[in-house]
Design a protein around this nucleic acid. Sequence first.
DNA 1: ATTACATATGAACAGATGTTCATATGTTAA
DNA 2: TTAACATATGAACATCTGTTCATATGTAAT
Lengths: 116, 116
Amino acid sequence: MDNPTCSCFLLHEDVVEKVKKALPDDNKLMDLADLFKVFGDSTRIKILYLLSVEEMCVCDIANLIGLSQSAISHQLRVLKQAKLVKYRRDGKVVFYSLDDDHVSSIIKQGLEHINE
Amino acid sequence: MDNPTCSCFLLHEDVVEKVKKALPDDNKLMDLADLFKVFGDSTRIKILYLLSVEEMCVCDIANLIGLSQSAISHQLRVLKQAKLVKYRRDGKVVFYSLDDDHVSSIIKQGLEHINE
DNA sequence: ATTACATATGAACAGATGTTCATATGTTAA
DNA sequence: TTAACATATGAACATCTGTTCATATGTAAT
């Protein structure tokens, strides 16, 4: 057997070969999963949705969502690292906004799937 | 203060009111997060990508990805529950395929974001 | 400088998640 | 019916994740 972790035999070698060729390399798929992981939390999805309407500061986001400033800040950090949001500072206040057109578009596709 | 979990004050009430109106209700956003949660795992993303090329049986998927038959079966269950894949039985073998056009389209959008 | 406030960050803890292992179910062939 | 095999499922376990709490940083005003 090829793989010790797999308890079954290869059934359709031709299909597997064909699909294997069409598959992006592992790292790319890991990155892709990591991207969607960021979308896969209700707090972050809310933040992204809010920001698709208008830029907002941390404080207002926290109030609107009903979580602590700290929790929101932590999540904004995740969103920032994923390059989904950007920010600008205005005095003491930091305003966040979407960094990418894909964000709205991905959310939209997701909603279409939900609404079926 | 409105919310005991928020340690900061409302800064821009007008913006918050506007955004609050534009926001879908909580349940919908939860569902949306749950949907993306399904995409947010490398094993499941791989499975979805495989199936976007061609329908495959559990055994071949397990061999191709290099995980146990059990692990793949568990994940296919998750994908099934999210209505992202469907299956047909042919004798002992069960073939899975994508259930929805949105799947490929969401993955495509994600990849575009990655490739920037 | 000191105070006030908006935001960021580290540690810790509880709950969620993915894999494995063992085993059950379903189908075919002998 | 029995054996063989493809798939499904439940329990257990280790890891990952999101929130809170406490505190640090950054900025403006007094």
